[in-house]
Design a protein around this nucleic acid. Structure first.
Lengths: 339, 339
DNA sequence: CTGTTAGCGCCTTCAA
DNA sequence: TTGAAGGCGCTAACAG
C-alpha cells in the first residue's frame, strides 16, 4: 500500500506537507495541495490504520457485544440487522466493528470474563452493548469505569446510561390503536408474568386512551426460552381465550412464537382469524411469514437501531461528556392477514 | 495498557530482553525470564496489536465476507453460527474477525466494489468468503491476485480453490439411507431444476446404492428466493405428490421452506405424516421446529464449518503454499416427528 | 507556507 | 546472555 512517504517522494515535498494536505489541516499552498491529492488518488492512498492507532494510542475499533444462543438461536435474525446497521455507520466514519459473542447459554462466567478482558485489553474506541438485562448493564458500568465510551441498545429508557432503545411500549400502544381503528373493542394482551413490563405498559396506556376494558391473559408458570414450549403455551392459551365468558375480538401476543401458537390453536378450534379474532405478534421473525394466516406483527427496527447506536457512540467519543442520553426508535406494524 | 517498556523498567532489564522472554525466543536467562513473566502477569501485559501490525506490515485481521439479505433474511440464522465458529478459532490465535456484508439484494455493483476495495485496502492477513456462487469465486480470484490468502465456505468441492465445504451430497445420501432403514422404499426428492445439483447427486447415489427407483418432483418455473413463494410451491407440490400413480412413502425436500409447504399441503389433504409419507427438510432453520409435525431435517454444521475455515486459513497464512485443499464437513440429520 | 525532529510499541539486526 | 540502534506509517510541536 502506498504511504505518505511514497506520495512525498513523487510530489517532491516533505512527508509532513503531504500529511497536512491530505488531512486538510494547517497551511498548504494550493499548488501543493492539488499535486498531493492527484498523486494520492493515483496511488490509491489509504491511511494506515495501524500507524494511526499507534500514534493516537487508540484503536479505531468499536467493540460490539451481543449474546450468542447456541441452544436457542432465536436472537440471530434480529441481531444480524443490528450488526449491519452498526457496520454501515461505522464504516462511513472510518471505524471498524469488532464483534464479541457472550455465551449466555452455558452461563460460563469464566469464558465471559475472558471475553470482557479481551475487549478491554484491545482498548477499543468505544463499545456497543446489545441488550439491557442486568448482565449488560453491569458491562456498561465496567466499561465506564475503564473510560471506554459505551452505548446500550435496549428496549426501554435506561436511567443514567446512554442508550438507543427500541420502543416496545410505543409499539404495543400503536398496535392497540390500529386494532381499535379496525373496529375492534375487546382487545386483549397475552403474555407472561413479570417479563413483559414495557409491552404491558404500552397496552395499558392505549386501552386507557381509548376507554376500553383491559383484558390480560397471562401464564405465570413460565420461565426459560424454549421456543417450542412458548408455541405450545400459545396453543393452550388459545383455548382459554376462546372459552372466556366474553371472548376478545383481538389479541396482541408477547412474541411471534406465542402468536403462532395462538393461531394454530384458534384454527384447531375453528375460531376464524381475523374475522372472529385478530392476532398480532411481536418482533417480526421469519416465522411470521409462515403462519396461516400470515401474522401481523410489531417489527423491530433493527437496522435503524444499529445505525443510531453507532451514531450516538461516535458522538460520545468525540464530544465532551454530556448528560446520559436516550433515543427511542419506533417499532412499526408489519401488516399481514391475521388482522 | 502496559507496554514492554513498562515491564522493562520494573524488571530493570532492556526492552529487548523482555520482548525475547515473552515471546520465548532467543537467549534469556532463567532468572530474567521468570522475573519478566511475573511482572507481565502483574501488569496484565498484552502486546499492542497496532504496533505489531505496523512492524510486520500486516494486519492481524481476517476479513469475512458474506451476503446480506435485507429483503430475504433467510441467511441470518445460518450465517451467525458460522461467524461464531470463525471468531472462536481466530480469537484463540490472536487474530481479529472483520465482517463485511455484500449487498446482493440491491445488486449494487458499485457498493460492492467499494466494499472489496475497503477490504483490500486494509490488507487483512486473510479472508474467508462465505458462499460459492460465481460472485464469490471471482472474489476469491481477486484476493489471490492481491496475494491475500483466501478460503471459501462452500457446499461442494471447488476446483483449484481452498475451501471448507458443507457436504450436501453426503447429507442427502445419508438421509435416504436413514429412510430406507426405517422401511421406506419409495423415496422421492422434491426440488427445483438446475439449482440443486449437489443435493440431487447425493439422492441419486443413495438410490443407486439401495437399488431403489428414482422419483423426482421438480418445479421448473421457479427462480428467486421469496420464501413465501417457496412455501406455496411446496404446498402445491404436495398435491402432485399425493396424486401420483404410485405415491412415494417418503420425500426429501430441497429446503425447509419447501418441506414446510409440503407438510401443510399433506395435512390439508389428510395425508398422514409420517405414517403415509415421511418428510425431510434441508438446513434446520428455525421454521423446522414449528411445523406440525416437527420437521426432520438435514442440518448444516455451521459452527464447525466456521471453525475449520478459520483453521485452514491460519494454516494457509503460516505455511508455504501447497496444493488447493478441500475439507468436507458432514451434515447431520436432526430427527423430529415427520419421519 | 514548508521541513525537521521525535516518538507511539514492537521486532530484527548487530554489537557487546 | 544482554542491550543499543533503527524503522514500520503517522502526526504534533517546533523551527525555518
Amino acid at each position: 500500500m502506498a504511504s505518505l512517504k511514497d506520495i512525498a517522494k513523487r510530489a517532491e515535498l516533505s512527508i509532513n506537507t503531504v500529511s497536512r494536505a491530505i488531512r486538510g489541516i494547517g497551511y498548504v499552498s494550493e499548488d501543493a495541495r492539488k499535486k498531493v491529492m492527484r498523486i494520492a488518488v493515483e496511488l490509491g492512498y489509504r491511511p494506515n490504520r495501524a500507524a494511526r492507532s499507534l500514534r493516537f494510542r487508540k484503536n479505531f475499533e468499536i467493540a460490539v457485544i451481543s449474546f450468542l444462543g447456541t441452544n436457542n438461536r432465536s436472537g440471530d435474525q434480529l441481531m444480524m440487522e443490528k450488526f449491519v446497521g452498526i457496520k454501515r455507520r461505522l464504516a462511513a466514519s472510518g471505524y471498524e466493528m469488532n464483534l464479541h459473542f457472550l455465551d449466555i447459554d452455558n452461563d460460563s462466567e469464566l469464558a465471559n470474563l475472558k471475553i470482557l478482558e479481551d475487549i478491554t485489553g484491545q482498548s477499543p474506541a468505544g463499545i456497543i452493548i446489545i441488550g439491557d438485562s442486568e448482565l449488560y448493564k453491569s458491562i456498561y458500568r465496567l466499561m465506564e469505569a475503564k473510560k471506554i465510551p459505551a452505548v446500550l441498545i435496549s428496549y426501554d429508557v435506561i436511567p443514567d446510561m446512554d442508550c438507543v432503545y427500541i420502543d416496545r411500549q410505543q409499539g404495543v400502544r400503536d398496535a392497540v390503536h390500529y386494532l381499535a381503528e379496525k373496529g375492534r373493542n375487546k382487545i386483549a394482551f397475552a403474555g407472561f408474568d413479570g417479563i413483559c413490563c414495557n409491552r404491558i405498559r404500552g397496552y395499558r396506556k392505549a386501552i386507557e386512551e381509548l376507554g376500553l376494558q383491559e383484558i390480560i391473559f397471562s401464564e405465570n408458570n413460565y420461565s426459560g426460552s424454549d421456543l417450542e414450549r412458548i408455541f405450545d403455551l400459545g396453543f393452550a392459551m388459545s383455548k382459554t381465550i376462546a372459552g372466556a365468558k366474553i371472548p376478545p375480538d383481538a389479541v396482541i401476543a408477547y412474541s411471534d412464537y406465542l402468536a403462532a401458537g395462538l393461531i394454530a390453536g384458534f384454527r384447531e378450534s375453528n375460531v376464524k382469524i381475523p374475522e372472529a379474532i385478530a392476532v398480532i405478534g411481536f418482533d417480526n421473525r421469519e416465522l411470521a411469514t409462515f403462519t396461516n394466516p400470515g401474522l401481523t406483527t410489531i417489527a423491530q427496527p433493527n437496522f435503524r437501531a444499529g445505525e443510531l447506536a453507532a451514531e450516538m457512540l461516535l458522538d460520545k467519543i468525540t464530544q465532551a461528556n454530556e448528560q446520559p442520553n436516550a433515543v427511542g426508535v419506533p417499532m412499526n406494524l408489519k401488516i399481514r392477514s391475521s388482522t
